[in-house]
């Protein structure tokens, strides 16, 4: 067996660091982020625990958590961290890496919503609510919930029947093709 101790084997932690430009080791686990997190009650692991998983190399645990999907990106943690660690950005990176690695996503409806939203942007350049709701409902097979508010919005002209297509639509599509994370379950 040859020795490879001088060669650093890339890990998921390196991928996260590449995305966030910050070192996960910065976090000293004070837990202030979790104390102020508005989504903590709905999560499985506390937000600081996700950082701990990455620090310890327990990547699967981090990527399999519901927490990374429930994080609403409110930035309360990033604002309050005594080490100036941008935890919201870190959560973004863990999600992205989980998608790249084809991890089974715990909060499926949340991911389906994001995908349906991005599909409209990719196709039209701007958001298109009718298409978003259609695609989301098709993906979740949940056709009849949460429709009670739609008639009023239609009447008030807040749901556009047709999408607005930006002139640079092709450019938007090419931006997606160059940057989209494809592999995911």
């Amino acid at each position: 067996m040859s020795h490879h101790n001088t060669t650093h084997v890339r890990t998921i932690s390196d991928d996260i660091t590449d995305i966030t430009s910050q070192n996960p080791e910065l976090c000293y686990q004070c837990g202030k982020c979790s104390a102020g997190c508005p989504m903590r009650n709905y999560m499985d692991d506390a937000p600081n625990v996700i950082v701990r998983y990455i620090q310890l190399g327990l990547f699967e645990k981090a990527m399999n958590s519901a927490t990374i999907w429930l994080c609403a990106g409110c930035l309360t943690c990033s604002s309050r961290c005594p080490k100036n660690f941008d935890l919201a950005k870190f959560m973004d990176a863990v999600r992205e890496v989980a998608l790249r690695n084809g991890v089974k996503v715990k909060e499926k409806t949340i991911l389906k919503f994001h995908k349906a939203f991005l599909k409209q942007i990719k196709n039209h350049g701007r958001s298109y609510e009718v298409g978003l709701v259609r695609d989301y409902k098709m993906a979740t097979f949940d056709l009849f919930s949460d429709v009670e508010n739609s008639p009023k919005m239609l009447l008030d002209g807040k749901l556009n029947i047709f999408p607005h297509n930006v002139k640079g639509k092709d450019k938007i599509k090419s931006i997606f093709e160059k940057t989209e994370v494809k592999k995911c379950k």
Partner: peptide, 12 residues
């Protein structure tokens, strides 16, 4: 890009 872009792809 709103929420959906930054939660799935930093570059996007």
């Amino acid at each position: 890009g709103a929420t959906s872009a930054h939660v799935t792809s930093h570059k996007l």
